[in-house]
C-alpha cells in the first residue's frame, strides 16, 4: 500500500458516499445517470468475484463489500425508490456501445484466458468508460448540481491517483500492469474536460455549466 493508492481509495469511497447521501438526503436522483451507476455495479460485480475465495486483507475485503453494496444501493434508489425523480429523458447514452466493445476486447487482450481473469479485464475496461453516460447527461442538461460535480471530481481523482500509485509500484515494487495502466489513462483523460470546468468554475463558487 502506498499513499497514492490509499488516497485514491479514500477519494473513490468518498465519491460513492457523496452520491449515496445526495440521493438519500434530497430524496432525488435528478441529474444522476442511472446508466453509469448500472455500469459501476457491473464493474464491481465482475471485478470482485474473488471476494470470498481470495482473502488479501481486512481492508481489501471490507472496501470491496462496501463498493459492491453501495453501488447496488445506488442503482436501487435510482430505479426503484426514487425512480419518479429519475431523469430518463436526458440519460440516453447507448450503454451497449460500451459493454459490447469492452467485452470483446477483454477476450482479445488479457493476461490469462481464464473466466476470472477475463471478467476482471472486462471490469477494468468497462470502468474506464463507465462515466460516459453521466458526462453525456451533464452535457445534455448543460449543467450539474454542485454536489454532483464534487462527486464527479472525487471519482475522477481516484483513478488519477492510481496512475501515480502504478508509477510508484513500478519504481519501488518492480511490477506493472499495462491493462490497468492504459485503461486508467483513458479513464483519466475522459475527465480532463470536466476537471478544467470544475477547477475554473466550481472552485470559484460558480455553478458547473457546460456550453450547451
Amino acid at each position: 500500500m502506498n499513499i497514492f493508492r490509499f488516497l485514491g481509495d479514500i477519494s473513490h469511497l468518498s465519491a460513492i458516499i457523496i452520491l449515496l447521501l445526495k440521493i438519500w438526503k434530497s430524496r432525488s436522483c435528478a441529474g444522476i445517470s442511472g446508466k453509469s451507476q448500472l455500469l459501476f455495479a457491473i464493474v464491481f460485480t465482475t471485478r470482485y468475484l474473488d471476494l470470498f475465495t481470495n482473502f488479501i486483507s481486512f481492508y481489501n475485503t471490507s472496501m470491496k463489500v462496501v463498493y459492491v453494496a453501495s453501488s447496488y444501493a445506488t442503482v436501487w434508489m435510482i430505479y426503484s425508490k426514487f425512480k419518479a425523480t429519475y431523469d430518463g429523458n436526458h440519460d440516453t447514452f447507448r450503454v451497449e456501445f460500451l459493454i459490447v466493445p469492452t467485452a470483446i476486447l477483454s477476450f482479445l487482450v488479457n493476461h490469462d484466458f481464464t473466466p476470472l481473469e477475463i471478467l476482471w479485464t472486462f471490469s477494468i475496461y468497462l470502468e474506464s468508460v463507465a462515466i460516459l453516460p453521466q458526462l453525456f447527461m451533464v452535457s445534455k442538461t448543460g449543467e450539474a448540481e454542485t454536489i454532483t460535480s464534487h462527486y464527479l471530481f472525487a471519482l475522477g481523482i481516484y483513478r488519477t491517483l492510481y496512475l501515480f500509485n502504478w508509477i510508484w509500484r513500478y519504481q519501488f515494487e518492480e511490477f506493472f500492469d499495462l491493462i490497468a495502466i492504459v485503461a486508467g489513462l483513458v479513464q483519466t483523460v475522459l475527465y480532463c474536460d470536466f476537471f478544467y470546468l470544475y477547477i475554473t468554475k466550481v472552485l470559484k463558487g460558480k455553478k458547473l455549466s457546460l456550453p450547451a
Binding site: W120, F175, D177
Partner: peptide, 10 residues
C-alpha cells in the same frame, strides 16, 4: 519487471 500481480488493488 514482473507483470500483473496486483490483484491486491481495488
Amino acid at each position: 519487471k514482473r507483470e500483473n500481480c496486483h490483484k491486491d488493488e481495488l
